[in-house]
Simulated scan of single mutants.
Amino acid sequence: MRHQILVPTDFSDNAWSAALYALKLYANKPCTFYFSHAWTFLNSGSRTHISQSYIEPLIENAKEQLEAVKEKAKLESTSSDHEFETIFSYGSLMDSIEFANKEHNIDLVVMGTKGATGAKKIFLGSNAVTVINKVRRAPLLLVPKKCTFETPKKILFPTAFTRFFGEEIMRVKQLAELHESTIDILHINKKDTLSDIQNSNLESLKTSLKDFEFNFNWMPDYNTKAHAITDFIKDNDINILTMINYEHSFIENLIKEPVIKKLGFHSRIPFMVIPRID
């Protein structure tokens, strides 16, 4: 199986860190890495006053930078089964991702995030939040600023067991297969019992994961789920956090909150958001 990995870039150090993480995560797998750049002309005045002779060199420069990123990735890759392509487009980041998803059947989008910066401590950054909200074709792996690759021995999957696990759980299993990772299932609840529906969903999950090493973990709901997840990550040496982006889910609440201090959540490890399948 050849994996199709999309790495959007704005040519920042942040974006390059995400690219490096992707290369190492898939170091032993046949992959095609698509480096994409969405070019938009930002002008506070009227577009009609800007000549094409001014814009064209800017476009050419961006294309050259994109090609340079691809060549740099080739040098970093340690696998002869890795292939590299570029996708240069005009318009928004979302348009670029949607185009790549449709044309190349992308398996995973890997993006760098700005993390907590400045007085407001913005979580993820506006681009990442937009992509989480709108991308429905492929999972999104958000790589924090300055995150260095560690072999993902442990993957965290928080769940309330309130929904049946369909194709979405395949994404967690595919991630675990890359490095034979253990899957830590985390349930956060004030009650110490599960409903009949929750028990049924738990049993179906166990069946789905029968060929994987996994652990079931229960935590009381203290303060916020964000605090519980953050503490579990820290205490259990988790390498990647995964969640399914259901409607009215924890992720939805998380990305609506701009001030991290109120949430107590700031992931220092990659965060894979799995789109729900409607």
Rank of each mutant, 00 (worst) to 15 (best):
I5V: 10
P8Y: 04
S12M: 01
S12V: 00
D13I: 13
Y21E: 09
K24F: 03
L25V: 07
Y26N: 01
A27C: 11
P30V: 11
T32Y: 02
F33E: 02
F33M: 04
F33Y: 13
F33G: 04
Y34I: 13
Y34K: 01
A38S: 09
F41M: 14
S46I: 03
S46R: 09
E56I: 09
L58E: 07
K63G: 02
K63S: 07
K63Q: 15
E67V: 04
K74F: 04
S77L: 03
T78R: 14
D81S: 13
Y90F: 15
E98W: 00
E98L: 14
F99R: 11
A100F: 09
N105H: 15
V109F: 09
V109S: 11
V110T: 07
G112W: 07
G118P: 07
G118D: 08
K121M: 03
L124N: 10
T130M: 11
N133H: 14
N133I: 13
L141S: 07
K146Q: 14
T151P: 09
I155P: 09
L156K: 00
F157S: 03
P158V: 02
T162Q: 12
R163I: 03
E167Y: 07
K173S: 08
I183A: 00
I185M: 11
S195I: 06
D196P: 01
L202W: 06
S208M: 14
F212Q: 07
F212K: 12
F216H: 04
F216A: 02
N223Y: 15
I229N: 05
K234S: 06
D237T: 08
I238P: 04
N239E: 09
I240R: 03
N245T: 06
Y246K: 08
E247S: 08
H248Y: 11
I251V: 15
N253P: 00
K256M: 06
V259S: 07
V259K: 11
I269M: 02
M272Q: 12
I274F: 00
D278P: 15
